[in-house]
Nucleic acid binder design. Sequence first.
DNA 1: AATGAATGAGTTTTCATTCAT
DNA 2: TATGAATGAAAACTCATTCAT
Lengths: 191, 191, 191, 191
Amino acid sequence: MKPKDQNKVEAIYRAMLGLVRQRGLAGITMQQVAREAKMATGTLYIYFKNKEALVVALTDKCVRHVASNLFRNYNADAPFKTGFATIWMNIVRHRIEFFNESLFIEQSFHSPFVSNETKLALKKSFDPLLLLLQRGKDEKIIKDVDSFWMLAFIIGGINEIARRVNYFNRKASQQVLETNFQLCWDGIKAA
Amino acid sequence: MKPKDQNKVEAIYRAMLGLVRQRGLAGITMQQVAREAKMATGTLYIYFKNKEALVVALTDKCVRHVASNLFRNYNADAPFKTGFATIWMNIVRHRIEFFNESLFIEQSFHSPFVSNETKLALKKSFDPLLLLLQRGKDEKIIKDVDSFWMLAFIIGGINEIARRVNYFNRKASQQVLETNFQLCWDGIKAA
Amino acid sequence: MKPKDQNKVEAIYRAMLGLVRQRGLAGITMQQVAREAKMATGTLYIYFKNKEALVVALTDKCVRHVASNLFRNYNADAPFKTGFATIWMNIVRHRIEFFNESLFIEQSFHSPFVSNETKLALKKSFDPLLLLLQRGKDEKIIKDVDSFWMLAFIIGGINEIARRVNYFNRKASQQVLETNFQLCWDGIKAA
Amino acid sequence: MKPKDQNKVEAIYRAMLGLVRQRGLAGITMQQVAREAKMATGTLYIYFKNKEALVVALTDKCVRHVASNLFRNYNADAPFKTGFATIWMNIVRHRIEFFNESLFIEQSFHSPFVSNETKLALKKSFDPLLLLLQRGKDEKIIKDVDSFWMLAFIIGGINEIARRVNYFNRKASQQVLETNFQLCWDGIKAA
DNA sequence: AATGAATGAGTTTTCATTCAT
DNA sequence: TATGAATGAAAACTCATTCAT
């Protein structure tokens, strides 16, 4: 009586994420995943019906992971800048630490597998930030710019930091992050 | 690779770029490319030795395309802000219009095909911008922030604009671009 | 410009039929079929979407083949016994000569692939015989037995002849067939 | 094969027989058998060395089952017709009731597992009937037709009755059986 | 003995590449 | 050159069998 092993699922996920970075999502073979996760190919199919199911499940997990981290320690009652800085730091740290997950999400969103539902879920996880931006605009703290584009500005900068940390093997010290936050903040703050 | 018929080559490139967006680079088959380019599979191999050669050639082309557009109309002798705005607009317009090319570059950089040389070439195409940023810092017009991270800030915002235009089917009017430029400018300009 | 090759389809069918006899339907691998048909495995998939499609197509073909042979040379206006003998001989000869097809039909009917439609088509191909039996009963030439069971009696005997010819490697001479027909005829004819 | 628990063995046999009808012998997986027999896959291997051993054992059992039923209540000293009718009824009833076993025998005979010995055993189980037919011929009660073909005629009709009862879900009443016997009898009886 | 997850060889299917036309 | 059927190596997936519990 051997129960299904949650560690195996984790190992499979870890293997996928590691490989995506090297080969790109569709360049990955199930054999590679199995080898990387130290199990037989057949075992993958005990845990996932097929490759598509694996991709879908991992995408969902990554999307939920993002959502669960975005607003950690965020207090909606704190002053605007405090709240915004908290979220900004959350996102940038998540993106850096779990860069492979972001990469995986991006790639899987370009595969024919992932549902619009999942795509929407990712988008909706940013809603509280949109709410906060609205409040900032109401309080005249930040510029009165369409939140869609302001979010682009904020997220874009963050993404690129994470990308560079990972691709150019740079360390993002607290100092660096604060400097970068300053650029972002000066960009959005009301004149 | 005997480009007797340059139209065919273009058709193949166009097919690749269109498909990458839908399926991701590695999800593409040569048959799909051929069908999309309205020719027989065998014909692809008249123009390109194999799939790798096709990916490499297209990557090179896209990288050269970026480089050739970045500094269009840029006058190194103009005032800093004028020059910077010119470049910023060049990049954002290129990224929006040729979004599929950017996507392709990103994906092909994750494939085992593309050489470091090509990757470096892309990086180097931004050198004049780095030069300009240095001048801006020297002239105390912009903040004294490591150009590596300042570039991240600038490019990140631009990337995200292009992404949103394409994924959310938004129109980026001159108005929108100027507003976004303002955010960026306020971010980098010296206090 | 090489057109799809009908000979290939025939070769595949022939290979399948030959193999079914040795291994049973589900014991056949696509590789075996390909080897037997003297082509590469991949080629099978040019002609048939997958194994199931191949089985279905061949089943249909065999069923249509039976139907097309049952009533060859049959003249509905001839005396009952003449007509009946014609059909009886048609069936027995078809079953003997194309024994592998019968075998294939039987096995594929036990697979999860084949539609009820196909099964019905086979059943319906016997309708003219049922009609003839009815006439024979009306004319008091044959016994007044439910045609369903009378058909069982007729067909059962024929099947077993074909089986024995093939399994025991016996020759079914005209003489033998006539003797066997006599058994059948004496069975059904009115007292 | 340690038949500690005969119930398990029976359950496995029952599962096999049920599945063969639906999927065909070679379409059956050990997992399906296990599920159907309400036990774990591993358990099958406690009772049978491997799949082949299971098929062989069940085939033997089915063949022995036929043999044991053919001549039940048969009295070699009774008049010919009485004896023949007894056997005919035995066979038809066995074939109808244990149709899945007949099916299984037929399919397993087409697999590479079953030995010629087993095939011969089945054939030999009909010997007493052949003997009886010879007596009938000697006594001029039945036609002087090669017993090989006369048996084909007799068995063929029986097989088809069983097939139709099972495939068309028809009930074979005593009445129906007697009618069918009459067809057979009229076929073989001397002119 | 019983279980069912794990294994990996074997099968089905795909796809880059070749080749006859 | 252009075609697309043919090829066969490689990928996805299955399943008989084993093994730790």
